[in-house]
């Protein structure tokens, strides 16, 4: 028996919007720790990892570990029927092939339940060890989204370089080139507007902008984004989900042949 009650139901809608461009089908894993997911895009270049900790739910009951295969577009269709202020409860019984989403309006005058068929999904799960990164950049998520969007109108790839001077995003295309440098800036009114660079050593990596733009669909989940870079590793783009967990994206770099 599984029963997860999330008062801030709109958060689940935002989580779905943050993943469904990258992944079509995924297994949601439910355990005592929380509600989680790991899925790769079809080309195995990018991976999304989600964790919503059990403590973040108003009510969390998960009698035994359960993996539920869902089509994210279908799940999104159902969640879009919930009001933005609705409380969402996810329910499933052991051994059934469906999941129920229950939507309650804040004053309890409307209650809806939507039952969705589950799917068998053969997904590969990658082991991702904790790593030391050469550079970690924290910046406003809206600023990162703006940079990725702007650069993708010029080129297909971005070189992200971190030096003592700041973090530089560069691209080149048929019509020309573009460079955007963000300097460390801690002297802002609000901490979420700061750009903070922790650098062990300079690092420069090339990534496909198409994937980074997909990652920025998570912007409504967090005011800030953390970008962790190391020359030997995929980049990690993390959006913290307040009081609940995170959505992390991993993207393998491009290398010059």
């Amino acid at each position: 028996m599984l029963e997860l009650r999330l008062v801030q139901g709109s958060l689940l809608k935002k989580v779905l919007d943050a993943m469904r461009e990258l992944v079509n089908d995924a297994n949601f894993d439910c355990s005592a720790t929380g509600f989680s997911l790991q899925a790769m895009d079809s080309s195995h270049v990018a991976l999304v990892a989600l964790l919503l900790r059990s403590e973040g739910f108003e009510h969390y009951r998960c009698d035994r570990n359960l993996s539920m295969g869902m089509n994210l577009n279908n799940m999104s269709k159902m969640l879009r029927c919930a009001g933005n202020d609705d409380i969402i409860t996810i329910k499933a019984d052991d051994g059934t092939d469906s999941v129920t989403f229950m939507f309650e309006s804040p004053n309890q005058d409307k209650i809806a339940d939507f039952e969705m068929k589950l799917m068998d999904i053969d997904s590969e799960h990658l082991g991702i060890p904790d790593a030391e990164y050469q550079a970690i950049v924290r910046m406003p998520s809206s600023e990162f989204a703006r940079i990725c969007k702007d650069l993708s109108s010029i080129g297909d790839t971005v070189v992200i370089s971190v030096t003592k001077e700041g973090v530089k995003f560069s691209t080149a295309g048929d019509i020309g080139t573009a460079n955007i440098v963000c300097r460390q800036n801690k002297t802002v009114d609000k901490p979420e507007e700061a750009t903070i660079i922790e650098m062990q050593e300079p690092v420069s990596l090339t990534f496909a902008l198409r994937y980074l733009n997909s990652f920025t669909k998570a912007t409504p989940l967090s005011d800030t984004v953390t970008i962790s870079l190391s020359s030997e590793l995929p980049v990690v783009v993390e959006y913290k989900i307040a009081e609940m967990g995170y959505i992390r994206y991993y993207l393998a770099p491009k290398i010059e042949e």
């Binding site: 790769m40 080309s43 195995h44 270049v45 990018a46 991976l47 590969e124 799960h125 990658l126 082991g127 991702i128 790839t157 090339t206 496909a208 030997e232 590793l233 995929p234 991993y250 393998a252 770099p253 491009k254 290398i255 010059e256 042949e257």
Partner: peptide, 14 residues
């Protein structure tokens, strides 16, 4: 030309 690497080149199956 840049070559796109895949995640399996960095991480192994769990």
């Amino acid at each position: 030309w840049d070559t796109q690497l895949q995640l399996q080149g960095f991480y192994t199956n769990a």
